[in-house]
Amino acid sequence: MTHGFDLERRLDQREDRDLRRHLEVAESVAPQTRFADDPKGGAPAFGDEMLVFASNNYLGLADDARVQRAAELGARTVGTGAGASRLVIGDTRVHRALERDLATCKGAERALVFSSGYAANVGTIDALAPDVVFSDELNHASIIDGCRIGASETVVYDHCDADDLRAEMERRAAGADESEQWLVVTDSVFSMDGDVAPLSAVCDAAREFGAWVMVDEAHATGLFGAGGGIVQREGLSDRVDVQLGTLSKALASQGGYVAGDEALVEYLLNAARSFVFSTGLSPPSAAAAREALRIARETDRADDLWDTVATLRDGLETMGYEVFGETHILPVVVGDRGDAIELADRLRDHGVVAPAIRPPTVPEGASRLRVAPMATHTADDIAQCLDAFRATGREVGVL
């Protein structure tokens, strides 16, 4: 008899379902880089340089000299690490400056920075401890885990369907105690479909029942609404009670944030366990995120991204590919799992990295390649990507 864990068997099961993943070392974080198989302690052996259309570094700021200088200054003036929880001695002027800028950008009274966007979601939902969470069916895993940990009950409504949300709330209201606390949670931009939540309609439905609205702007911060996100683009700052996001995508750093009124932030810094019991975000990360936010707000970097997105979408659709969404995330739908994996593999042979996304991450029959361009991709980069999709699509038989 054994009470241990047969992890090799679990790995074999993942392999059988085409779900086993492997680490791959990137030489740099840039539109073009070289990759190596997991060296497992040895020196990586990098191959030829490849074009990366798989990064969440949407504005291409991760290797921007201005952001790098800001990170270096943060390290030199404050330190490489916060040294402790923010509530102990880890609260620095760099954190406060970033939080002030985030609050201004989000049209909020105050902001609070967490060690990751995942920690922000889990910690916030757990701290609020809602009786019921109404959650979009395609919300990110961090929201799902936050609901599992912190919500007494979770009701999932149809994706981007405010009418179904309202119907679910009506059903719940029929037998609910008036003292129940309800939270409606949705991403603003969905990372696998590239679509946008109908936030105004979601807010309308929530208001009918006196529920709070929480919006995760992970894939929107820095790209819409003068850098704020979809909430700012739609003019909803005063209708969304809890605004979240990450610093690790368009802002090219690490960490997450929550923005809202003074009472919300003051409560979270006392009650969100993922904040209270975590070492503060490193000062270089905070300083880098602040500079990236400034660039996003004060320059036309996002316009460069949108030009690239338009060219790619038009080129892919003209070839005959179906491209979902309406944002900078371009899901190229293939359908069959095997075809998607083969297409991604053949693209790499042409020097282009665009990952295959297959079930259970997406529904059966909806396997796709997730194309994520950066503002720093050149015209030649875009042309090479489109040429690769044309050639490989014919090779695989999906065009």
Rank of each mutant, 00 (worst) to 15 (best):
D187S: 15
D187P: 03
G229M: 08
Q232S: 15
G255I: 12
A271G: 00
A197W: 01
R233M: 15
Q232W: 06
F224W: 15
V213Y: 00
V258R: 04
A252P: 13
H219G: 11
A201G: 12
S248Q: 11
L244G: 14
G225I: 02
T246C: 15
S253Q: 11
Q243W: 02
V184T: 04
S179I: 11
G228R: 01
L236E: 03
S200E: 10
A250K: 12
G235A: 04
L269P: 00
A272D: 14
A259Q: 09
V202F: 07
S253F: 11
L183S: 02
E266V: 00
A220C: 14
A226H: 13
L183Y: 00
Y267N: 13
S188P: 04
G227E: 05
V242R: 03
D187V: 01
Q243I: 15
Q181P: 00
A197Y: 07
F209A: 14
A252F: 14
S188Y: 01
L269C: 13
L264M: 05
D238T: 08
S179P: 00
V196R: 08
L268K: 02
E180Q: 04
L269V: 07
A218N: 09
S237G: 09
V215K: 02
S248L: 07
S253R: 05
V231W: 09
V240S: 05
Y267I: 01
R239I: 01
D216I: 06
F224P: 00
G210Y: 08
V185I: 13
V242Q: 04
G227P: 02
S237K: 10
W212I: 03
R233N: 10
G227D: 02
G225F: 06
V215G: 07
L247H: 11
F224M: 11
M192T: 14
G260I: 03
A259W: 10
F190N: 02
C203E: 12
G229L: 10
L183T: 06
N270T: 13
D241C: 11
G225D: 04
L269G: 09
M214Y: 00
M192F: 13
V185R: 06
T186S: 15
V215W: 00
A205E: 03
V258K: 06
A205P: 02
E266I: 00
E262F: 05
V213G: 04
L268V: 10
T221V: 15
V240N: 03
V215C: 09
G210E: 06
L223M: 12
T246F: 08
E262N: 13
R239P: 04
G229S: 10
Y257V: 13
E208G: 05
S253D: 09
G255L: 12
G222M: 06
V265D: 00
W182Q: 02
E178W: 05
E208L: 13
N270R: 12
D261S: 03
V196H: 00
T246W: 02
F209E: 13
T186R: 11
T186C: 08
